[in-house]
Design a protein around this nucleic acid. Structure first.
Length: 134
RNA sequence: GCUAUCAGCCGGGUUAUCGCUUCCUGUAUUGCAGGGGGAGGAAAGUCCGGACAGCACAGGGCAACACACCGGUUAACGGCCGGUCCCCACACUUGUUGUGGGGGAGAAAGUGCCACAGAAAAUUACCACCCCGCAGUAAUGCAGGGGCCAGGGUGAAAACGUGAGGUAAGAGCUCACGGUUGCGGCAGGUAACUGCCAUAACGGGUAAACCUUGUGUGCUGUAAUGCCACGUAAAUCAGUGUUGAGGGCGGCCCGUCCGAUCUCCACAGUAAUGUGGGGGACAUUGAAGGGUAGGCAGCAAGAUUGCAGCAGUAAUGCUGCAGCCAGAUAAAUGAUAACUCUUCCGGGCAACCGGGAGACAGAAUCCGGCUUACAGGCUGAUAGUUUUU
RNA sequence: GGAUGAAUAGCUCAACGGCAGAGCGCUGCCCUGUUAAGGCAGGAGAUAAAAGUUCGAAUCUUUUUUCAUCCG
């Protein structure tokens, strides 16, 4: 499909609902790949309120380690960019399973990372998610 | 040209690929295509002042808070501009100098405080000094009477300063010069204030201690507020009251305004009615909870931005022309690469080559300020210095 | 985003504008076969930071930093 060949990250692919996030923190499964901590939750599409299969992600940085808004924005933008470029394989397999997945990634490092590092580590996270859902 | 200070301004650029957000148009049904817009001088701190919204609003007084030389400016301000006085720093040409910084009602309305040291910390005493008196030949001494202050190792601060006269000894006690303050007159200035003359006085500091005087201020904030959807509970408990309980005038008081108004039983009474008790309802206050965690408006054309002209020393104002310039909400404005700009390091006579760095920082209702952070660069003024003409 | 409050010894708190203190903890010694308890002695603060007012600031004023609380 020509749709999957484009690397997008629009509003529908971001996790925005406060309710969903609370549910994710309550019931989600977590693991960590340094410098990230990842929470995720997966549903069958039919039995839940969200009928369409899809993948929603959110990114967060602690205020404790980055006091300035500029630095937090920088890290979150790097994380989003890496996710955008690499998430398509995972999306494809979730669509095949007709499921609905939410992912929440928290940056736990205490200094501003290089783009190269974020890119590689996000790849590792995706690989692990892919393995876990199989 | 260089250095320093001050003021104002800028805060890298272009292209490609892949994305994000919003608006418009088309197709079409929440996709796709095309086009337009998309962080700052501080967006920050939330320190001031407004706009706007909700609640409250006859009026008066008190309290609380803020401000405080004078004039101007503004929607408003604790801001800004100009002037004035005092203090401090720097510079030199060493003075009616220049530049920069800080401060400004009242300490002569009253109260408080001023540790240690010191006789004394604010109008008072003590030591010492002098005279008289008494004792003594005298030196000298004193439970006496006066002078009442020049001297008293301190201290941040000591009762106008210096000199002379005067006196028993001394003192602004008197005089000369000087200082400060008050009142009055004249001159200049819108005024603060300045200069001169005359006269009286000399009273330490602290108001970022209480306070006094003058001026101003209703409170809460866009998570305000209004509407829609979903959902819950017209629920529960406690206090008070039902003709004067309570509430409003957002701290308090006066004053004033609003204000629920049912029924049953017992007793008294011929009755109207009154007293007591119970119940309900209502009013009001408080406690402890329940639901929602979505959407729309508020919310992007305004004390607006740019340029030009005019008025004004300036802040600022007026007029004309042109422009429309972010609107997210787990929160967009990004990533990568190349070239270029500035700058640093190394190599090289040089052209150039290689490597590194580019600050502080991210809108959340919007404006005017202040404060704080900031690589580097530009412009102007002043001062110094060097060279040339 | 908006509105409040706080910062003193390792911890919990005191302290009129005039010498920075208490309790617990810590260190050493005594006691004990050893530990705890007990007794004796001791050290440790530039009062969160920087300016200002004052003769003198933990305290008063301003700015900054950090931490905490509240909201529909």
């Amino acid at each position: 499909m020509e749709n999957s060949s484009r690397n997008t990250l629009g509003k529908n692919e971001r996790l925005k609902s406060r309710k969903s996030i609370e549910q994710l923190f309550k019931e989600g499964i977590s693991f960590s790949v340094f410098p990230f901590r990842v929470l995720y939750l997966i549903h069958k599409a039919e039995d839940e309120s969200n009928p369409s299969p899809g993948l929603k992600a959110a990114f967060s940085v602690s205020k404790k380690y980055f006091k300035h808004a500029t630095e937090r924005n920088r890290v979150k933008r790097l994380m989003r960019e890496s996710w955008r470029l690499q998430k398509n394989n995972l999306l494809q397999s979730i669509k095949e399973m007709n499921s609905n997945m939410m992912v929440f990634i928290i940056y736990t490092g205490n200094e501003i990372p290089e783009y190269q590092l974020v890119f590689e580590k996000t790849g590792a996270v995706l690989k692990r998610l892919y393995k876990n859902i199989k």
